[in-house]
Write a protein that binds this DNA or RNA. Structure first.
Lengths: 133, 133
DNA sequence: ATGGACCCTGTAGCGGCTACAGGGTCAAGG
DNA sequence: CCTTGACCCTGTAGCCGCTACAGGGTCCAT
């Protein structure tokens, strides 16, 4: 029905054209029909699928996680628990990342606080980076 | 003096041997003298430099930022301000990342909260990922 | 018929390593 | 002296998730 060229599909999902082709190459998005002139011709199912992918990617799910989520979404009889597991794994990874970055920020703050426009010869940042002499 | 083989240097700085060679290839660590059998032979200056690099990398500075920091550290007459600028840029980038991840975590939390062991057919996570129908 | 916007395939690059393959070197033990 | 095994060498390919070409073809309006 819809019959979208790749550019339209890309625009509709806020994706680069190259990225759409990339998703097809890695088997994330099924290859669509082709027009007489060998142009890719997408329909609504592709639009739905790509929207799903983009939304999941925006939420930070890896390509492999997206693959799993889509496989689960396709088997509609199955329990939601498997989906919950993936989402929670990802949530935990984010918690870890935030903790790491927060620790890092604290370290950088002490570093930056100690800089007071002296010459590099006695710059505390450079000192702090140098091996603990 | 020190005369370290690459393995010792790597261990002393908690770095992979391959990474040390990589740093040499990209011009981050100067190429050391070679032994009779063509082994790399490092001295204390290499140890200091690599320690500096590792510490800065651990703090999340990019390779290019490390390059800048080392260049500044070498020109000891210059003002500390340039160093301060790099550190602050990096600090700001981290602040942004933490904010992004925190927002993401919140979104994921609402998603996860809505999962209650039903079948995938009415799984709220899958629904939430699907296009806003 | 011509221009410009779109599309095609294929390959190389980004950052920052990591992991081989296929060799050479060195020191200790038998 | 010889072997074993740990170390070292170079060079290349792979990881992730795209992005950016190069060098062409197609489609539509003027």
């Amino acid at each position: 029905m819809s019959d979208l060229a790749i550019g339209k599909l890309a625009k509709a999902t806020d994706t680069n054209v190259e990225t759409v082709r990339y998703y097809e190459k890695i088997g994330l998005l099924p290859a669509p029909a082709r027009s007489a002139g060998n142009y890719r011709s997408y329909d609504e199912s592709h639009l739905r699928r790509l929207s799903f992918i983009r939304r999941a990617r925006d939420l930070g799910f890896s390509i492999d996680q997206v693959r799993e989520l889509m496989a689960l979404a396709d088997r509609r009889d199955q329990s939601c628990m498997a989906v919950d597991v993936i989402a929670n794994q990802h949530r935990n990874a984010i918690t870890r990342k935030i903790a790491d970055l927060t620790a890092l920020a604290a370290e950088l703050d002490t570093l930056i606080d100690s800089c007071s426009r002296n010459t590099v010869a006695d710059c505390r940042i450079i000192e702090a980076l140098a091996p603990q002499a």
